[in-house]
Design a protein around this nucleic acid. Structure first.
Length: 943
RNA sequence: GCCGCUGUGGCGAAAUGGCAGACGCAGCAGAUUUAAAAUCUGCUGGGGCGUAAAGUCCCGUGUGGGUUCGAGUCCCACCAGCGGUACCA
């Protein structure tokens, strides 16, 4: 009677685990610890996606496996619940964000529990918990209280910041301002990505192609006073400390490229008349290179100081502060028109279209400090205000962009680097007709002529540094992190702005006393953005907004933190989630950190991981954590695509067009020949066949059909809902299938038939042991308490061996195949030793815990198998007494022969030479050499 | 353009430089059944020779080269698909 029925088994065991707190993790590890972490989800209204359980199952397998290996396992789960979508949803449905967020969290929790993950739910947290964001605010105050000492390469308390004498003598206000300029959390007037559609500013990372990542709204650049975090100060360490981490090289490279460290020089070009140049040079020679760019000079950043002699013009960004002061009256109108147009363009518009470079002449000239020649200063939007100094020396002969611009505006091109090799276009390069960006030897370059590129760089930096004209410099593509948002649903900043008697800000700030944290969100009737860059918290009651301390009145900071804030440190809080005195108890932190395995989607490869590493380093510098890096091993799971779809293309009259005969047009795909629009039509698998490398219609093999799995999306209608998979096949089948699909890191298409296949396997496991004719979970009579036969032992031990080794290397798909082989084998055995059955159940438990617990119970055990020792194997048992080895001639298999498994090289070679078929093949030939790989094969090299 | 990843049967895939295609899906055949479902058993890369079976040979891991006794695996060049990125001086 009882067939395998996950619908009853699964809730039963989930309840058992809950009631018995089976997965409760002790405060401190006992023996070896393992911290296995998932990237916690954003609890959207749509619920869990099938992509989520992929990583979660992988970590769950590791967690369960580790428990059975006797390790203490920390395996927590929580929610990254602040952020835009919750707020958008709240506005749309007119529910307070906290209410909708809590509903979503409840639904996510239900779904996660339904999948049987072995989380310690007592440690569950949400970034929106007041008790949690209290500590997020606390960490912000640490950032606010820290400056970066570049000499020591370390964040230090602001109180230790040396104050220069001139600042000191300017008074307390100046000292305060000086400190504010050096804090890791500082306010700055910055050009920000203002998104009117969302009513907030966004970080550079949240803007994709000039549109907001969330919602795809257009983004403009406007100047606004904002909170920034000085992540660039940690740029070198963020690159350097990547090296020892157990992350994939590609993720490391991605992070390193994102930080984008480059070295070169800053060089000053004076904007003066040629006659004044020698005076300028003389005055510079007396003093060092000025810290701040002096007025009347354009400071550029270049990675190729060796090409300085080839700088034939300059370009400054349209937003550059010098634009106003250097432009000549004749050019004023043209410059204004150009800059205005650039300001209103989003980045998207600037780079869109034909990408032709545009610019305008300022009328001004600067002096090339090495040639003494006057060169024109242009304005062009291909120079970005946010990188380097916002100004460049243009070396058209050796930079593609400058070359293109110089050609467009007929500016001079002078070759100053001779390529190392004699290429065909050498003459054209020397003549300035072709751009060459590679290394070579300096030419037309005065004192550095003949030096190779590296020597030329250091030589010119050295000489110009002595003359006070240049200095070595480092730059990062990474910008400081824009940290404030004009939205309601985020952590409030624990900062107060001092007001004078008239209620106007004095410019002084005060950190909220740590003892009075958290600063909770005020209740707002209306939390909608209003299309102006003013935060909704400004609409809070005065009782929230204004604070008086020691007789001084303050107004609260009304910006909120971005969604990333909460996810920057949650892995620390899981270690000690209820601690009321500190973010985490230092002894526990030391015992549990670092995270031993961190699994999540590759979309967080740069942002989340970079931000979290940055915060962690600040906490490390300030003595709150014991190690500089939080995530020892990182694995990115691949994307799960929808089911494979076949798509054909039809003209309006219904006739088919081959998918190879199409081209793109503005209105969509068209037939290349007739130029008519085609319509994409879904074709059933049964109507398609494969010919050669491509799929075609069965009815007309000339018509090629596209075969492709697409990203799951509501619009395409190919989203798989975990709830329905669980109700149809069970959670164990879903878990098993997600692992069986292929390697964790690969992108792979969903297949409902595949789910059915693993469900079939679980049915077979069930029938291997359970009498489905009986009333209860009775074992079959063939399950007997007997010693396995040698052959059974071989299967048993080799299954244990392979499953164990593969899980240890995070190969989750192949152990399933091994267990299938085990089941296929024992299904044919008329006597099935109980010991072997028990071992299988334990091996299966990390993958399919519910059925495993049920079978474990049926095998006569009363306790959960969670802490049962992992089965062990004896490698000697996995071997047969005789093995079949291939006999090759010149690398081709010509025969096979049985040899004893321990056969020596000599025995194997003899077995090969004596083989009848080998004799036939050797007729008339001589063996030059015999290659024997013990236990593997024999190869004869013959002539 | 640049960077990264991936190319193996009808499909998902497996393979410390050593018998390519384990395992699963789909398909085919058989057993069971009044019948079907379910289940169990077997076959299943392509092509020759062979009536067939047994057997046997050739080809085959995107393409072209290379290293090696031996290459899906290592090296070079290229092609295709997917993902990321976009004037970072």
């Amino acid at each position: 009677m009882p067939r395998y029925n996950p619908a009853t088994i699964e809730p039963k065991w989930q309840n058992y685990w809950d009631v018995n707190k089976t997965f409760q993790c002790p405060e401190m590890p006992r023996g070896e610890k393992v911290y296995v972490l998932d990237m916690f989800p954003y609890p959207s209204g749509a619920g869990l996606h099938v992509g989520h359980p992929e990583g979660y199952t992988a970590t769950d397998i590791v967690a369960r496996f580790s428990r059975m290996k006797g390790k203490t396992v920390l395996h927590p789960m929580g929610y990254d619940a602040f952020g835009l979508p919750a707020e958008e949803y709240a506005i749309r449905t007119n529910t307070p964000p906290r209410v909708s967020t809590e509903n979503n969290i409840a639904n996510f929790t239900r779904q996660l529990k339904m999948l049987g993950f072995s989380y310690d739910w007592d440690r569950c947290l949400s970034t929106t918990d007041v008790d949690y964001f209290k500590w997020t605010q606390w960490i912000f105050l640490e950032l606010y209280d820290t400056w970066f000492d570049f000499e020591q390469q370390k964040g230090r308390p602001i109180a230790e910041l040396p104050i220069p004498a001139d600042v000191q003598s300017a008074g307390a206000f100046a000292v305060e301002a000086y400190r504010d300029r050096h804090r890791l959390a500082y306010q700055d007037e910055a050009l920000v990505n203002w998104c009117p559609g969302l009513g907030t500013v966004l970080a550079n990372e949240e803007v994709i192609d000039g549109k907001s990542e969330r919602g795809n709204h257009p983004v403009q650049r406007i100047p606004l006073r904002q909170w920034m975090l000085r992540i660039t100060a940690y740029g070198d360490r963020l690159i350097h400390d990547l090296e020892p981490l157990d992350w994939s090289p590609s993720i490391k490279k991605l992070q390193s490229d994102w930080i984008g460290r480059s070295t070169g020089a800053e060089v000053d070009f004076p904007v003066i008349a040629s006659e004044q140049f020698s005076d300028w040079k003389a005055s510079r020679a007396k003093s060092a290179f000025p810290e701040q760019q002096p007025s009347g000079t354009i400071r550029v950043y270049t990675t190729r100081p060796d090409t300085l002699y080839g700088a034939t013009y300059m370009v400054i960004a349209p937003e550059h502060p010098l634009v106003k002061s250097i432009v000549t009256s004749e050019q004023a109108a043209a410059v204004k028109a150009y800059c205005d147009a650039a300001a209103f363009k989003s980045d998207r518009d600037r780079t869109d279209g034909d990408k032709k470079k545009t610019g305008v002449f300022t009328g001004a000239h600067a002096i090339n400090p090495v040639t003494g020649k006057a060169i024109p200063v242009w304005i062009a939007d291909y120079v970005l205000i946010g990188y380097g100094t916002g100004a460049i020396m243009a070396v058209p002969a050796h930079d593609d962009r400058d070359f293109e611009f110089a050609q467009a505006y007929k500016l001079p091109i002078v070759c100053v680097v001779k390529p190392e090799s004699n290429s065909e276009v050498l003459d054209a390069i020397l003549a300035g007709q072709v751009c060459y960006t590679g290394p070579g030897n300096a030419m037309n370059s005065g004192a550095i002529d003949g030096l190779d590129t590296d020597q030329a760089k250091s030589s010119i930096i050295e000489s110009l540094s002595q003359q006070g004209i240049a200095k070595e410099a480092v730059n990062y593509k990474l910008r400081d992190w824009l940290f404030s948002r004009q939205r309601f649903w985020g952590e409030p900043f624990p900062i107060l702005h001092e007001l004078d008697k008239d209620g106007n800000p004095t410019g002084r700030k005060r950190a909220v006393d740590q003892a009075t944290l958290p600063v909770d969100l005020p209740h707002l009737e209306d939390f909608k953005p209003h299309g102006r860059p003013e935060p909704p918290l400004a609409k809070a009651d005065d009782s929230w907004l204004y604070v008086t301390i020691d007789g001084v009145r303050y107004r609260r900071e009304t910006n909120t933190m971005p969604q990333w804030a909460g996810s920057c440190w949650y892995y620390l809080r899981f270690i000690d989630p209820k601690n009321a005195k500190a973010i985490v108890d230092p002894a526990k932190e030391k015992a549990w950190m670092p995270v031993d395995l961190y699994i999540g989607g590759a979309e967080h490869a740069v942002l989340h991981l970079l931000y979290a590493r940055f915060w962690h380093k600040v906490l490390y510098d300030r003595g709150h954590v014991s190690q500089p890096e939080p995530f020892q091993k990182l694995v990115n799971q691949g994307m799960i695509l929808g089911e494979v779809e076949y798509t054909g293309y039809q003209l309006s009259d219904g006739s088919w067009v081959s998918s190879t005969a199409l081209e793109k047009s503005d209105n969509g795909l068209i037939d290349r020949v007739s130029k008519q629009l085609v319509e994409a039509v879904k074709v059933e698998e049964s109507e398609v066949t494969k010919v050669g490398d491509s799929f075609v219609l069965i009815s007309n093999e000339k018509i090629r059909i596209d075969s492709r799995a697409h990203k799951m999306s509501k619009a395409r209608g190919n989203v798989i809902n975990p709830d329905s998979v669980v109700s149809e096949y069970g959670a164990d089948s879903l878990r098993l299938y997600e692992m069986f699909m292929g390697p964790l890191e690969a992108t792979k298409p969903w297949s409902t038939k595949g789910v059915n296949g693993v469900r079939n396997f679980l049915d077979r496991v069930w029938r291997l042991m359970i009498d489905t004719q009986g009333d209860g979970n009775d074992l079959l009579d063939c399950i007997q308490d007997v010693e396995p036969t040698p052959e059974q032992n071989r299967v048993l031990h080799s299954t244990i061996m392979h499953v164990t080794k593969d899980i240890e290397t995070l190969g989750f798909n192949t152990p399933i195949a091994r267990m299938m082989e085990f089941v296929n084998f024992f299904t044919k055995e008329s006597v099935r030793p109980k010991r072997a059955m028990e071992a299988l159940v334990l091996l299966l438990a990390p993958y399919a815990p519910h059925i495993a617990e049920e079978l474990w119970q049926a095998l006569g055990n009363s306790q959960s198998l969670t802490y049962e020792p992992w089965p062990t194997y004896d490698e000697a048992m996995t071997r047969t007494s005789e093995i079949e080895i291939p006999l090759q001639i010149n690398g081709k298999v010509r025969a096979k022969v049985m040899v004893p498994s321990g056969a020596t090289v000599e025995q194997m070679e003899a077995a090969g030479r004596n083989h009848e078929k080998i004799h036939e093949w050797l007729e008339g030939k001589a063996i030059v050499k015999a290659i024997v790989i013990p236990g593997r094969m024999v190869n004869f090299v013959v002539k």
